[in-house]
């Protein structure tokens, strides 16, 4: 491969028709059932989904660590190994990856030395907020500290594509905020970032685009705000004695209505529209609250839509396994 990526690449990341199954004592587990994703250079994309959605499996295939059963991956027009060989890829995987018997600075320096155009070690330590523990041995770090060191190891490579698998899992609130502040500095340099998370807030705040995965499929893909509207079903709660339920259900943007004593709860696909219509029509409504529904409920709603056509016979990408299979597949439990 002679192409050397001095300037930001023009073609991005393509995942086409990816599928992957694992054997298990209870029959095959379809971790990924046909994923097509196209990411432009410079985008920051969140892979959002609950445990077992196929996020880690997808990332492993994207990085060439796991061969897909079918489908292809190209990174900047190259295969994953080719892209990795040019130093275009940096990654923070889910587990471990802190080598013993070195200090933090030595580890970061060693990793940087493997890449053609690494960041300076001091700059990396500074960015990751670990300058103060630079001399500490890597096996004497707290969980949050080693998470930052792992981030530094990924960042020092100064890659065109940075892949992060649940990067903030062991971090407290403050560390999480610092982490994303660092990420902003990094993405402002025109880098492509793909990160997996199961926090909607994180995906919403830091990604340009959210790809929602559930049971090994892409169930939604779009700008963060749009996905949040889809996923983030809102509810309007109001005190409204003797309410006319059918009239409330007929309001624009309302999907259904529940009552709790004197209160009504409107589940809305468009809470703004519903609220505009509610106020003039029901002037008695008071104590009005608008709130977002949790991500878990949203997932349940999105994924329950395509559960009706289950058949667990095929390994092909259209074959639907029973829900329990995907649900039982905790990311941490998947081996070969």
């Amino acid at each position: 491969m002679t192409t050397h990526l001095a300037s930001p690449p023009t073609t991005g990341i393509q995942l086409s028709g990816l599928t992957k199954s694992f054997r298990s004592p209870d029959g095959p587990v379809h971790a990924v059932r046909g994923i097509d994703i196209s990411i432009a250079p410079g985008e920051t994309v969140a892979l959002l989904g609950p445990n077992g959605a196929g996020k880690t499996t997808t990332i492993d295939m994207m990085l060439g660590l796991l061969p897909p059963d079918s489908g292809t991956v190209t990174l900047f027009g190259m295969t994953p190994p080719q892209a990795i060989a040019t130093g275009a890829v940096g990654a923070m995987l889910q587990s471990g990856a802190v080598l013993r018997d070195l200090s933090v600075r030595e580890l970061v320096d060693m990793m940087g030395s493997l890449y053609p155009k690494p960041l300076a070690v001091d700059e990396t330590l500074e960015l990751c907020g670990i300058s103060d523990i630079a001399a500490r041995k890597t096996h004497r770090l707290s969980g949050g500290q080693s998470q930052r060191v792992r981030f530094a190891v990924a960042l020092v490579s100064n890659p065109d594509l940075l892949v992060l698998d649940e990067p903030t899992v062991a971090m407290d609130v403050e560390a999480r905020r610092d982490f994303w502040a660092t990420m902003r500095t990094f993405t402002s340099r025109g880098k492509t970032v793909v990160f997996a998370t199961h926090y909607l807030e994180e995906a919403d705040s830091y990604a340009d685009r959210i790809i929602l995965l559930a049971q090994g499929r892409v169930v939604a893909d779009g700008p963060a705000t749009e996905i949040k509207a889809t996923v983030g079903m809102r509810t309007i709660r109001a005190t409204l004695p003797d309410a006319d339920i059918p009239a409330l259900e007929a309001l624009p943007g309302v999907t259904n209505v529940e009552t709790r004593g004197e209160a009504v709860i409107l589940n809305c696909s468009d809470s703004d529209g519903a609220l505009r219509a509610l106020l003039p029509a029901f002037t008695a409504a008071r104590d009005i609250e608008v709130s977002g529904a949790g991500l878990e409920e949203a997932f349940l709603q999105l994924t329950s839509d395509d559960d009706t056509s289950d058949d667990d016979t095929g390994d092909d990408d259209t074959g639907d396994g029973p829900d329990v299979e995907a649900a039982a597949l905790d990311d941490s439990e998947m081996t070969r």
Partner: peptide
């Protein structure tokens, strides 16, 4: 696994 993601 981490090492494999480097150009080493």
């Amino acid at each position: 696994r981490q090492l494999r993601l480097t150009p080493l």
